Amino acid sequence: MLIEATELADVLVLTPQPFRDGRGLFTRTFDAAEFDAHLGVPGLSATFVQDSQSRSYRGVVRGMHGRAGRGEAKLVRCAHGSVHDVLVDIRPESRTFGYQQSFLLDDNDFRHLYVPPGFLHGFQALSPVADVCYRIDRPHVPGEDLGVAFDDPDLGVPWPQPVTVVSDRDADARSWRQLLETLRIEHEGPVRHFRPRS
């Protein structure tokens, strides 16, 4: 498994190395020993306690979601189809606070993201059907949910396709400025963008 840093501080891209032959392919989608060794934190992979999966249809946007308190770490991958995945760093002490970066996740490269606590996350389905799998290090606590509107102008996410469907929760989400006020973070201006990773 290839593990690479991204422009966003502490975010990693994990790319499996599938074995392909006339039958199709076989790949190891996650290796705890390699992951822990790369981060230099023995046992970190054992902190993941919940696996979830979503299915979305082309154009659907899910996001932008985050978590208050100590946040949550997660591994995100697209098991079927493809998605335009977006992260925004909301950690005030981070050197990349207020930056966003997008990634193509699909069922061809099986690339997935390690997202540490302190990020907004969202994606848009690019294929007719997209199944996204999440491995999360904390049980869900609804009262800690954070969100910013997917179309907030200060967030400025460049969704690659027309947005077809969002949940009521995402349609009613707060603005980037309201999130900063809630978190008591002083920051001027819109979110800045790193180049997309494909």
Rank of each mutant, 00 (worst) to 15 (best):
D31R: 12
T29A: 09
G40S: 10
Y57K: 10
R70H: 11
E72K: 08
A79K: 03
L39P: 05
P162A: 14
A73F: 08
D10F: 10
S94L: 07
D170V: 02
M64N: 04
R67D: 05
R91N: 10
V76G: 05
H140R: 07
P128Y: 00
R67P: 01
I185A: 02
R58I: 08
G40T: 10
D145W: 00
P162G: 13
G98K: 00
R28V: 08
G22A: 14
R184P: 01
F150W: 15
F48N: 08
V41H: 09
D21A: 02
D107Q: 09
D106T: 07
P116C: 13
R177T: 15
L180Q: 03
R197H: 13
Y99P: 01
T47P: 05
P142C: 04
V13A: 04
V166R: 15
D31I: 04
Q53F: 13
G59S: 13
H140E: 09
E7Q: 15
D109G: 14
Q178N: 08
S198G: 09
I3R: 06
Y114N: 06
V115N: 02
T27F: 15
A73S: 12
R169T: 05
Q161R: 15
A171L: 15
T15R: 13
L104M: 10
F119P: 07
A125L: 06
D152F: 11
P160E: 11
W176F: 15
S54R: 13
D107A: 14
Q17P: 01
L8N: 06
H121L: 03
T96E: 12
E93S: 10
N108A: 15
Q50E: 15
C133P: 01
A33W: 03
V60H: 03
A149S: 14
L87R: 07
A125W: 00
E186W: 02
R77Q: 04
G156H: 01
G59A: 12
G40A: 08
R70M: 09
R91T: 07
G43P: 01
F110I: 13
D154N: 15
G81Y: 02
A33M: 01
P139V: 13
V165P: 03
P153M: 03
V157T: 12
N108Y: 14
A171P: 12
H84K: 09
R184I: 02
T29R: 00
P16N: 11
R70N: 15
S52D: 14
E93C: 08
P92M: 05
R28F: 09
D172C: 09
C78R: 01
C133I: 14
L14S: 06
P116I: 00
G81V: 02
L179N: 06
F30E: 08
Q178P: 04
P160K: 07
L105Y: 04
A5L: 10
D172A: 14
G24W: 03
I136W: 12
